[in-house]
Structure formats: structure tokens, C-alpha cells
Amino acid sequence: MTRYTLARPFLLAVAASVVALSGCATISSAPRSSAAVASYRDSVDLAGRIAINYSRDGKKESLNGKFTWQQTKSNTDVSLISPTGQTVAIINVTPASATLKESGKAPRTAPDLDTLTQQTLGWTLPVSGLRDWLQGYAVDSEGKRFVASPANDNVVTRDGWKLEYMSWQDDNASVPQPKRIDVTRIALGQAVDDMAIRIVIDPAAQ
């Protein structure tokens, strides 16, 4: 397996999937609450880690990093951070464009982040869905609104991603908040053989 640490392809991969990883999150055995997540918020401020594993032409790749995610009603700003704490890239998404800024390089802009990742990586990643997914919301394969809870913790989205809410910041909270989200590509049809993303949101970000 080839492992990159915040290499250029990873910058867009993380930006697109942006949100957090950690293969060491544990799944609580406490009774599952039926309470749903909080009402959707236009403005959120999150941080965490992310891991992306995929195969392309039979070759397995693994990408890992950290991020911060600042979202308003119209804009999304993402910072990608190295394990040593250095900010290596900043992504800004507005209704009109998506821009990637890397240290020492000219900014790269496209009409949206899906297009930017397609141009840079050769395939798209679930960018637009993340504004919903990080808060426990999605649109399912039948076009219905999905709202996550410990008792209703998985869904296949309209655009072919399987979301599994594996653990929560506090299973017993009256309004649970997602902690770990596993994302698997169901409908590929791209230049990749398979793709899985693991996201963990830091407790301090809630």
C-alpha cells in the first residue's frame, strides 16, 4: 500500500471529503437512543481527521490528514493541516466558485469543488454532500430527507454513497452529535475501483 501524507492529490481529496478521520474511534455498546440529531445549522465550526482509502487500476492508496471546517449559509472554508500543525492548504467554496490555495503556488479556481477535484484528481469526491453529512443529514436514494440518530444510523444517498454513523459524541445525549462517519462509494462509474472514507469529528469542535 502506498501512503501519502498531505501530498498534492490528497489536498483535494481531503477538501472534498473534508472532515475527519481516526481509525481508533470506538463504538459504544450503550443502548441506542431514538433521538435524532439537532436541527440543521447553516453556520458550523468543526475540526477533525480523515482517512481515504481507494483502489485505482488495482493499486491501493491511503490518504490521511487533519482539517478545520468553517461553514456559513453561503460559504465553506476548509484548512488542511499536517501532523505537525502546519496549514498546507486552504479551500474556499462560494456559490460562484471554489478556490484552492497552497503555500508558494498560484491559487487554482473552478466553478465548484466537484469540478476542481475532477480536474485535479480525475474523479469527483462527495463535496456538496458534506455540508449535510457532517451534521447527520442526507438525501436518500429515493430523494427523501434522511435524519440520523443512534437508532437510524445508515443510508444510501441519492448520488450513490453509503453513510454509516458509527459512533456519537455522547450516545446518551438528548441531542446526539456525530463522531465517526464511514462513507463508502456504492455507484462508482469513475476512474477508481473502490473508495472508502472514514471521518471522525473532534469533541472540541461541537
Rank of each mutant, 00 (worst) to 15 (best):
T2M: 15
R3V: 12
A7C: 06
A7V: 07
P9S: 05
F10N: 11
F10Y: 15
L11M: 08
L11A: 01
L12Y: 07
L12A: 11
A15V: 10
A15S: 12
A16G: 15
V18M: 10
V18Y: 06
V19N: 09
G23E: 08
T26N: 14
T26P: 05
I27W: 12
S28W: 12
S29F: 05
A30R: 15
P31T: 11
P31F: 14
V37K: 02
V37C: 04
A38L: 04
S39N: 09
Y40D: 13
S43N: 05
V44H: 00
D45F: 02
L46V: 02
A47R: 06
R49F: 00
I50H: 04
I50G: 08
A51G: 02
N53Y: 00
D57V: 02
G58M: 01
E61F: 02
S62P: 15
S62H: 10
G65N: 03
K66N: 12
F67N: 06
W69V: 04
Q70D: 14
Q70A: 13
T72K: 02
T72I: 02
D77W: 13
V78D: 09
S79Y: 12
I81R: 00
I81M: 01
I81C: 01
P83D: 06
Q86A: 07
Q86V: 08
V88I: 04
V88R: 02
A89N: 01
A89T: 03
V93G: 00
T94Y: 11
P95I: 02
A96T: 11
S97Y: 05
S97I: 05
A98K: 01
T99M: 10
L100Y: 06
K105Y: 13
P107A: 07
P107E: 07
R108Y: 04
A110W: 00
P111N: 14
D112R: 00
L113Q: 06
L116M: 01
T120M: 11
L121V: 04
T124K: 10
L130S: 11
L130W: 09
L130C: 08
D132R: 15
D132L: 15
D132T: 15
L134R: 05
L134F: 11
L134G: 13
Y137W: 13
Y137R: 10
Y137T: 08
A138C: 05
V139L: 03
V139K: 03
D140R: 10
E142T: 15
K144H: 07
K144T: 02
F146Y: 13
S149I: 09
P150H: 04
P150C: 04
V155H: 02
V155G: 03
R158A: 12
D159Q: 15
D159M: 15
K162N: 09
L163H: 14
Y165H: 13
M166V: 12
M166W: 14
S167G: 09
S167K: 10
Q169K: 06
Q169S: 08
D170K: 00
D170T: 01
A173V: 07
P176E: 08
Q177L: 05
K179R: 13
R185A: 14
A187T: 10
A187C: 04
L188C: 11
G189H: 14
A196P: 13
I197K: 04
I199F: 03
I199V: 12
I199Y: 02
I199C: 08
D202L: 08
P203C: 12
A204D: 06
